[in-house]
Amino acid sequence: MFTIEHEFDATVITLIDEGSVALQEDVTVTAFDDCVTLEQVHPLTQEPMIITLSMAQVQDLAAALNLPEGSYRLEPAAK
């Protein structure tokens, strides 16, 4: 399950782990104009862990989801 909220300066997606086996804490993905953050509360310390990705890293991640094992570099689109 997931939710999507559009705020003033960002789009917020929350991924909710459902099921009966080894559930993980919710993950919040916040997309800003210049970066994307991933946040998850650590189950033992209850402290939030935040990872910030540049837009280039987000593009690489999106491409990587559909590629086989290997090393890649995305080239800028020709104008």
Rank of each mutant, 00 (worst) to 15 (best):
M1L: 14
F2G: 11
H6C: 12
F8A: 15
F8I: 09
F8K: 15
A10K: 15
A10W: 12
T11I: 14
V12R: 13
V12M: 10
I16R: 01
I16M: 05
E18L: 09
S20W: 09
S20F: 03
L23K: 09
V27H: 00
V29F: 01
V29G: 00
T30S: 06
T30V: 04
D33M: 01
D33F: 01
D34C: 00
C35F: 05
C35K: 09
T37K: 02
E39W: 07
E39K: 09
E39M: 09
V41M: 06
V41F: 00
H42W: 02
P43Y: 01
L44M: 12
L44N: 08
T45S: 15
Q46R: 13
Q46E: 14
E47A: 13
E47M: 11
P48L: 13
M49R: 14
I50F: 04
I51W: 09
L53F: 12
L53A: 10
S54K: 07
S54I: 08
S54H: 07
M55H: 00
M55R: 04
M55Y: 01
Q57R: 14
Q57F: 09
V58W: 12
D60V: 01
L61Y: 14
A64P: 05
A64R: 14
L67V: 08
L67Q: 04
S71N: 06
S71E: 11
Y72N: 06
Y72F: 11
R73K: 08
R73F: 00
L74K: 03
L74T: 05
L74I: 09
P76Q: 02
P76T: 00
A78R: 08
K79L: 04
K79Y: 09
